[in-house]
Write a protein that binds this DNA or RNA. Structure first.
Lengths: 214, 214
DNA sequence: ACGTGTGAACACATTCACAGCT
DNA sequence: AGCTGTGAATGTGTTCACACGT
């Protein structure tokens, strides 16, 4: 379930604050969801709560981490070391541990050999070799749109079955390969859509949401 | 509907290739969805297709752009000019036009005054003034987690009702304010979750998805 | 008394299948 | 003949409300 990571983060915040036990009501509001939904989600992992009391924070953190596969380390390769790729490489806090950036790849010869986030950028031609030697299981694509499909196919053929795609294209991959997409301009467009609805939605655009309040 | 931006992108690709008309079947496969779903989505905007023929690409592009509010320009402010904020500021291709980066804000005095993507970084204390003078209607938060809620509240009070949040926290905002969240480590955790399922899901972690294929 | 776990009701999204227009 | 638009069927996710354990 896609909400487990959110619960985990909320639980870790509680843990840092020294909280030992938490009710579904409190955890739900910290995670921004309905309490019944949270209980149903947690009951899917087995029943780790105590009626009349709540959930033991530490135990639940461990159970969710295990369910998410964070008790092992996942090697990640980033293909495309432009602005975004560099930002990801330098973004130290990949949440709680569980992920290790194992390789940076780029097609530009001028980029190859440079050191980014204390890793040497390697040429994309080495993709297959790097996936094998570093046991990469997650591929992150931050290339231009035109190169994304090619890189994805190479990742898949090299044995990577999990891909995080930042390029603005729909990737074609075989069944069994898991692709998640993050698209900044789509997020902005969705915000604009709702903003326009608020403002009247007639396409005139005279009164924007932000202006109504001033 | 959150799929309109995807359709729009697919249509623009067709347009660039000189295609004049497209069937729901073809457009659906380009966008990676079921054709019935696509037809139902499009029928929500009114009936812009011709039975026996398909949809006229140019007309549909215009209709979707209008529905999404892309016929007007939205001013965007980015708060937090770290690696990610810089990457976003420099990411020229904010899809098709419709968005203009109007201001960059940061709390670090050493950052203020620097030029990023040919914009001067301004101090976060100027947030309210900048929102007013630039008519900002979308706020992007790329600050550290600890500062995100404060920045969000200031955006909202300044009249910004659309927020794109990259900080790993759940933001608390009043009703009527639209928050979308992009969280890199959550995306990775979801991938890890599915990868573990594929690999057996027993938490041993001996055989990873990537290794099964080698 | 308190709060979890869950059946039942509900709301929503997806898919099927086909009538009807061009 | 071909393809859209859409009722009907199906599936999935959410919320309610309360029985039951502690």
């Amino acid at each position: 379930m896609a909400r487990l990571p959110v619960y985990l983060r909320a639980l870790q915040a509680l843990q840092d604050r020294g909280t030992l036990t938490v009710s579904s009501e409190d955890l739900a509001s910290a995670a921004g969801v309905n309490s019944a939904k949270l209980r149903k989600d947690l009951s899917h992992l087995g029943s780790y709560g105590t009626r009349g009391v709540g959930y033991e924070v530490e135990y639940l953190v461990y159970q969710i981490s295990r369910e998410l596969g964070l008790t092992q380390d996942w090697a990640v390769a980033i293909a495309g070391i432009g602005n975004l790729g560099r930002a990801l490489a330098n973004y130290g806090g990949f949440g709680t541990r569980g992920f290790r950036i194992a390789a940076l790849l780029d097609a530009d010869p001028a980029m190859v050999g440079q050191s980014v986030a204390s890793l040497d950028v390697r040429h994309i031609d080495n993709l297959e070799e790097v996936v094998r030697s570093e046991r990469v299981s997650i591929g992150v694509i931050t290339t231009p749109a035109a190169s994304a499909q090619g890189v994805a196919t190479r990742f898949v053929e090299a044995g990577v079955a999990s891909i995080l795609n930042f390029a603005p294209v729909v990737l074609n991959v075989p069944d069994g390969v898991d692709v998640r997409k993050v698209d900044l301009s789509i997020e902005l467009q969705i915000l604009a859509f709702h903003a326009q609805r608020r403002a009247g939605g007639d396409g005139r655009g005279a009164e924007r949401a932000g202006l109504e309040l001033t």
